[in-house]
Simulated scan of single mutants.
Amino acid sequence: MMKHLSNVFSMLVFIIGFAAYGNTGFAWFLLCLPLTVWLWGVLGWCMRLPRLPRLMMLLWLSLLCFKWPAALALGISVIIVWLFKQSHSMVQERSKKRRQQRKWLLGSYDYDFRTFTDD
């Protein structure tokens, strides 16, 4: 359900970006952020290929030369989405470590507890 709501919200942001396109440079950010969120998997796949990251950087630099508000908005949106994804994965790793520590502590206590028998 939340995935659908986030898609609807991203579509609204995208439409507002199209509506504001003629008036402000902030519209580029409103256009680039939802596209970056939607195409993040494709971007990650492209980064695994050997020569494509250099080509993508060259395209971004050419965009910076010819349409600098769009390039800045694209760079900022990629950084925001990357930071959000990284913070989400760091929280998962931290909770995984705590679960492992808790399991180890409970496992050692259970092992000690099972050694005592009622005779």
Rank of each mutant, 00 (worst) to 15 (best):
R98A: 05
L105F: 14
I79C: 07
Y109P: 01
S87A: 15
C65K: 15
S77I: 02
F84P: 02
D110C: 08
C65H: 04
F26E: 07
A20R: 01
A70Q: 08
F116C: 04
R51T: 10
S6M: 13
W68S: 11
V81Y: 15
M11K: 04
A27N: 02
L49A: 12
V8L: 05
I76A: 09
F29W: 03
L49C: 06
L74R: 01
D119R: 02
G44F: 13
F26K: 01
M1V: 03
L33G: 03
F29R: 00
S95A: 11
D119K: 05
G22S: 02
L49E: 03
S87V: 02
R51N: 11
R102P: 01
M1S: 15
S89E: 14
P34H: 01
G25L: 06
V37R: 08
N7Q: 07
L39P: 00
S10T: 03
V78W: 13
L58C: 09
Q92F: 12
L74Y: 12
Y21D: 01
K103D: 10
K103W: 07
F9H: 11
P34M: 08
W40V: 05
L31V: 05
M90T: 10
L31C: 01
W104A: 12
V37M: 14
W38S: 11
L30T: 01
F84L: 14
W40D: 10
M1D: 10
A19S: 03
M56N: 04
R48N: 12
P34E: 04
A20Q: 03
K103A: 11
K3G: 04
L35V: 10
K3V: 07
W40N: 05
W104P: 00
F84K: 08
R99P: 00
L83T: 02
A71I: 00
N23T: 01
P53C: 12
S89A: 14
C46T: 12
V42G: 10
Y21S: 04
L59I: 15
C32P: 02
G41A: 04
F29H: 00
A71C: 08
